[in-house]
Deep mutational scan, measured.
Amino acid sequence: TIEDAIKKLLKLAQKGQPYTFGDFTVTSEEEAKKLAKWLKKQL
Rank of each mutant, 00 (worst) to 15 (best):
T1H: 04
T1C: 15
T1N: 07
T1E: 06
T1M: 07
T1G: 07
T1Q: 06
T1F: 12
T1P: 08
T1I: 06
I2R: 02
I2Q: 02
I2G: 01
I2Y: 09
I2E: 01
E3G: 07
E3S: 05
E3M: 14
E3V: 13
E3A: 12
E3H: 09
E3R: 12
D4H: 05
D4L: 10
D4F: 02
D4P: 01
D4M: 09
D4W: 12
A5L: 15
A5V: 15
A5F: 15
A5M: 15
A5W: 15
A5N: 02
I6R: 00
I6V: 03
I6L: 11
I6Q: 00
I6G: 00
I6S: 00
K7W: 07
K7L: 11
K7I: 09
K7M: 06
K8V: 14
K8T: 11
K8E: 09
K8A: 12
K8I: 12
K8W: 13
K8R: 05
K8S: 05
K8C: 15
L9Q: 01
L9R: 00
L9N: 01
L9K: 00
L9M: 09
L10C: 02
L10N: 01
L10R: 02
K11E: 14
K11S: 10
K11Q: 12
K11H: 12
K11V: 12
K11W: 13
K11F: 09
K11P: 01
K11I: 11
L12E: 06
L12N: 07
L12H: 05
L12Q: 05
L12V: 08
L12Y: 09
L12M: 09
L12A: 10
L12I: 07
A13M: 09
A13N: 02
A13W: 14
A13G: 09
A13T: 05
A13S: 05
Q14S: 11
Q14G: 11
Q14N: 10
Q14R: 03
Q14P: 04
Q14T: 11
Q14L: 13
K15P: 03
K15S: 12
K15Q: 11
K15H: 08
K15V: 11
K15Y: 07
K15I: 10
K15F: 13
G16H: 07
G16W: 12
G16Y: 14
G16L: 12
G16S: 04
G16N: 06
G16E: 06
G16M: 13
Q17C: 15
Q17F: 15
Q17S: 10
Q17Y: 15
Q17R: 05
P18L: 11
P18T: 05
P18M: 10
P18Y: 11
P18N: 08
P18C: 15
P18A: 06
P18F: 12
P18G: 12
Y19F: 15
Y19D: 06
Y19V: 14
Y19R: 06
Y19E: 09
Y19M: 09
T20C: 15
T20E: 12
T20D: 14
T20A: 04
T20W: 15
T20S: 06
T20F: 14
F21G: 02
F21N: 04
F21V: 07
F21D: 09
G22S: 03
G22H: 08
G22R: 01
G22L: 12
G22Q: 08
G22I: 11
D23Y: 15
D23P: 10
D23W: 15
D23L: 13
F24G: 01
F24T: 02
F24M: 02
F24S: 02
T25D: 05
T25R: 03
T25S: 04
T25A: 05
T25F: 13
T25P: 04
T25W: 07
V26N: 04
V26K: 04
V26R: 01
V26P: 02
V26D: 01
V26E: 06
V26H: 01
V26I: 13
V26F: 08
V26G: 01
T27D: 04
T27L: 13
T27R: 05
T27F: 13
T27Y: 11
T27S: 06
T27W: 10
S28Q: 02
S28I: 13
S28G: 05
S28R: 01
S28M: 12
E29T: 09
E29Y: 14
E29S: 04
E30D: 10
E30H: 07
E30Q: 08
E30R: 05
E30G: 05
E31Q: 07
E31R: 02
E31N: 04
E31W: 15
A32K: 03
A32R: 03
A32P: 01
A32V: 07
A32D: 01
A32N: 00
A32Y: 07
K33F: 08
K33P: 00
K33L: 13
K33Q: 08
K33M: 11
K33N: 11
K33C: 15
K34S: 06
K34D: 04
K34P: 00
K34N: 11
K34E: 09
K34T: 05
K34R: 08
K34G: 03
K34V: 04
K34M: 07
L35V: 02
L35M: 02
L35G: 00
L35K: 00
L35F: 05
A36L: 15
A36P: 01
A36M: 09
A36T: 05
A36E: 06
A36F: 15
A36W: 14
A36I: 15
K37Y: 08
K37S: 09
K37A: 11
W38V: 02
W38N: 01
W38R: 02
L39C: 15
L39A: 01
L39R: 00
L39P: 00
L39N: 00
L39D: 00
L39W: 04
K40F: 11
K40L: 14
K40C: 14
K40E: 13
K40W: 14
K40R: 09
K40M: 14
K41L: 06
K41F: 06
K41H: 08
K41T: 07
K41M: 12
K41R: 04
Q42K: 06
Q42A: 09
Q42S: 09
Q42N: 04
Q42Y: 11
L43I: 10
L43S: 03
L43C: 05
L43E: 05
L43G: 02
L43K: 03
L43Q: 06
